[in-house]
Write a protein that binds this DNA or RNA. Structure first.
Lengths: 338, 338
DNA sequence: ATCTGTCCCGGGAACGGTACCGAAATTTTT
DNA sequence: AAAAATTTCGGTACCGTTCCCGGGACAGAT
């Protein structure tokens, strides 16, 4: 825009050749002599020629842009995943357009709409907490837009999915607490229509079963992510009947908030209650006691999902590749008793 | 793309009218009868017509997209700011394209290049930690691309800037520590070629001066953000000569890491050392002692910057509006002695 | 009956590229 | 020397819009 960006035609005119030749020269096409190619490139540089991406996009029906829909950038997991996405995308010559659903279905649908009308070449999606249907994504699939889910996946859709082993790691984390002598382990569950939440809960349940520990409904709470809710269910867990001696929390911040409350009540961690968080935030190392947590390979999941998407875009073949990225249990003081 | 997206021409053909009429009808232009307008819209709906944004962009030389360059999404401040940007942009019908400089100058330059070639209608920028020059931005300005800086600004450029009162809040924070009886306040400074870092340091220095407290070079350290560095300068501060009795840290995580180290050494906070952080992360409320911090109005800055940018885009007039957003001191246990 | 004005509409030129097709120029082969 | 092959280039259509310009129809005014 501005004053007068030089175009391919300007170059052609001043050089006395046709614009097709200029185009070929600039795209290193074979059908052009080295001599003219040199002259064209030289002049292009001198005129500060910048190809008009919009024109190219219109002609090629391709934008070299990937659309990303995530719940929130403020969520460190997704922020990291976006890092991985951008790294892979950029080094492959793609731009990235990020939309946030703010954990709502309607915004997610809007985002999808705008990204599709922006003609992105492919989509990377982690669904919102509210999402309990998939027709909007099916619409995109019907339009042949390559689509890959990561982390918050929709297993019913026939597209590639990248996820972490929520069941295994949850099983493993629960067993770790059991090994530390916990008999009554409280579990903070997420929305159960989400694949991840279900798997985590199942991992917990199976671990209890495998170790002959009775499942107590009263020890399982549902996080609703509202302010004050952690306080509420913590009180519920520790005031009604026999208190838990272990906590598997849905994320580190909640875990720390619970720990804070328990310490105020005079409980010792991990002696009275062992605590295990989720996400392995930096802060885990700087609290007392240091917080055991689960390292979620966010960046790697972004990388993996983007790689699959790019392959999908270039090969045009439909895959349903599932890729599982392993999580890691990081044991620190808050859960170590021996 | 895909099978066969219907175009404006398809509608025209099946309706037996010209595509100009269809275009007018869809854009609610006046030069079209209500009857045909109705028919066109009806058919458009039935054919699931989606306007081809690329064609429109090319024709109008406008993308309805804002470009954003920030250091890192992983940084909560910028993640929040992005939230504010997207909110304002989306409700004004604009998309947002986010690029991360990863705190490097070269990536920042690349980002600018790609955003410009993507023909974004305007730019929102928070410069990287490395950025000590401004010619690349001057290039964009010369091309008449509306540009607004926020938080990490470049004061030498004649464009709108949105920033917070780093000097004032730093002065205020330092004075707070002084009022709590601190005589030897350590200060962790950022890179001094950054406007914000300089202002913060100056606020600290001026507060000391205003309270007749000698400035000690040995109490001022430069954070370089490398792993292990906090440990290093904490040791330096507390092992060489007389120890500080107050700390003004560059961010909450560093503050918490310092507190952790000091507690390990048997120091009491705030009794022996009062601590003040920066950013007011959620975690501040869940540590012991709870951490005093400075609330940085990230979201609001994003909102303000975007509003100015949009005004700039639509009015085409060049302003140099400066907008100052006030920060807030949040006093908690870590700095309260009385 | 002609003129003026309003209301609709169509034709076509852009926007700035890419790509196909054919042709001229040059070289190689027969 | 003629034919064939190859290299290099120009012409042009096209991507799907928007928008300017001009023209036809029809009304009311003269």
């Amino acid at each position: 825009m501005s004053k007068s960006d030089s175009t391919i035609r300007d170059i052609a005119r001043t050089l006395g050749i046709s614009k097709s030749t200029v185009s070929r020269a600039l795209n290193n096409h074979y059908d052009v002599s080295q001599e003219t190619a040199r002259k064209v490139k030289e002049l292009a540089l001198k005129m500060d020629y910048q190809p008009n991406v919009l024109a190219r996009q219109l002609k090629l029906q391709r934008t070299n842009t990937l659309g990303v829909i995530i719940p929130e950038t403020i969520n460190r997991f997704f922020a990291k995943a976006v890092g991985g996405i951008q790294e892979v995308a950029n080094s492959a010559g793609y731009n990235v357009m990020i939309c946030q659903s703010n954990e709502t279905l309607t915004l997610e649908q809007n985002n999808l709409q705008t990204l599709m009308s922006s003609k992105v070449d492919g989509l990377l999606v982690s669904v919102s907490r509210q999402t309990d249907r998939s027709d909007h994504f099916q619409y995109a699939i019907n339009k042949d837009i390559p689509l890959v889910f990561f982390d918050r996946i929709l297993e019913e859709l026939a597209v590639p999915q990248v996820y972490s082993d929520n069941f295994d790691i949850s099983f493993q984390g629960t067993e770790h607490l059991i090994q530390q002598g916990c008999k009554r382990i409280a579990f903070v569950a997420g929305p159960l229509h989400l694949f991840n939440s279900r798997n985590r809960l199942n991992g917990y349940l199976e671990a209890l079963k495998a170790n002959n520990i009775p499942v107590l409904e009263s020890l399982i709470v549902q996080a609703n992510y509202q302010a004050g809710h952690v306080q509420q269910y913590t009180r519920h867990l520790f005031d009604a009947g026999e208190a838990p001696d272990g906590i598997f929390a849905i994320n580190d911040i909640s875990a720390l908030e619970m720990m804070h409350i328990l310490k105020m009540r005079g409980l010792q961690i991990p002696r009275d209650v062992a605590v295990l968080g989720f996400n392995n935030e930096v802060i885990c190392d700087f609290v007392e006691p240091t917080l055991s947590s689960i390292e979620h390979p966010a960046f790697d999941m972004g990388v993996a999902a983007t790689r699959i998407l790019l392959k999908q875009i270039s090969s045009k073949e439909i895959t349903q590749q599932k890729e599982l990225i392993k999580s890691r249990l990081v044991i620190r003081e808050s859960s170590r008793r021996y």
